[in-house]
């Protein structure tokens, strides 16, 4: 069931879905660097996250993926470089500032309160209030409609406590929360790490649907199957630097593994359109 893109030649199959629009990128990263003491977690990172596309970010443990997510979601600021949001350089000082701009981050476990129900979680921090009193009926209506729009059908009730949901259902709630917040960029940090086969399929489906709706989507994953199923574009981080970036058609699982583990790939076709910077040092005599 996993689509292994082009193990013989380049994938000839059309993209998983008609990639609508694309073109403009709400978020550009330019020359981003971040270090923790002596550890250079990221250096001179350039990355575009185009609207309507799923960009997968790959890299080995400690490559700097989570650090990059945290910069984008306002948890801390870069040492150097600029974050350009819809054409303007921005400073993201808090998670709240990032989410107010339209950047939503879906974390694996930290984003939901187990003791609150689905509606309460989806509206957490932006409750609908009428003269000081929360309008529960209105919130429930909007939450149900959002979940329906996303074709999330596995929840028996929006008044279920989140504690009683499965991992995939929790991801669905977190995604719906991002959608309801009118996010223009949704970042997923290892969205399928703890999920079984069918729940993974459901979450990947959701991710694709967000891109179809015109959002820019970034997915971090260690699972190449998932990445090749859902991503339009790939970026590989190696020791804090972008080792390769481009449309998924330029990659196959074998060269991606090379890029992740060594930062370069001999198997990479040099004339590949859209490929940038990969293995340049290697080519120089």
């Amino acid at each position: 069931m996993a689509q292994t893109a082009g193990n013989s030649s380049y994938p000839t199959a059309p993209p998983l879905r008609p990639s609508g629009g694309g073109g403009e990128s709400p978020l550009l990263l330019r020359g981003i660097a971040k270090s923790f003491g002596a550890v250079q977690a990221l250096s001179s990172v350039d990355l575009d996250l185009p609207a309507g596309k799923v960009t997968a970010l790959l890299g080995d443990n400690g490559a700097g993926k989570s650090t990059l997510v945290k910069l984008i979601s306002g948890i801390f600021a870069p040492d150097e470089g600029s974050i350009i949001w819809e054409g303007e350089p921005v400073r993201l000082r808090t998670p709240k500032e990032a989410s107010e701009l339209g950047i939503a981050t879906v974390y694996q476990d930290l984003a939901l309160c187990d003791n609150l129900d689905v509606v309460q979680n989806m509206f957490l921090g932006r409750e609908i209030v009428r003269s000081g009193v929360m309008d529960e009926a209105e919130m429930e209506t909007v939450a149900s409609r959002t979940l329906e729009d996303l074709s999330v059908t596995t929840l028996s009730s929006t008044r279920q406590l989140v504690a009683s949901l499965s991992g995939g259902q929790r991801q669905a709630v977190a995604v719906a929360k991002a959608v309801m917040a009118r996010a223009r960029l949704v970042v997923f940090d290892e969205p399928t790490a703890a999920l079984g086969v069918s729940q993974t399929a459901m979450v990947l489906d959701l991710i694709s649907r967000l891109a179809d709706a015109g959002m820019a989507v970034m997915v971090i994953s260690h699972n190449l199957n998932d990445v090749f199923r859902v991503a339009d574009r790939l970026a590989v981080l190696y020791l804090g630097q972008i080792a390769a970036e481009g449309p998924i058609s330029g990659f196959d699982p074998a060269n991606v593994v090379d890029l992740i583990t060594t930062g370069k790939s001999a198997r990479l076709a040099p004339s590949q359109p859209g490929m940038e910077a990969a293995g340049k040092e290697e080519e120089q005599p």
Partner: peptide, 22 residues
Amino acid sequence: RTRFGRYVYAIGGNAEAARRAG
């Protein structure tokens, strides 16, 4: 019924999630 009350529950349930919700 109020936001404040909801936030008290949210913090007790998962303070980090509450913080990320702003």
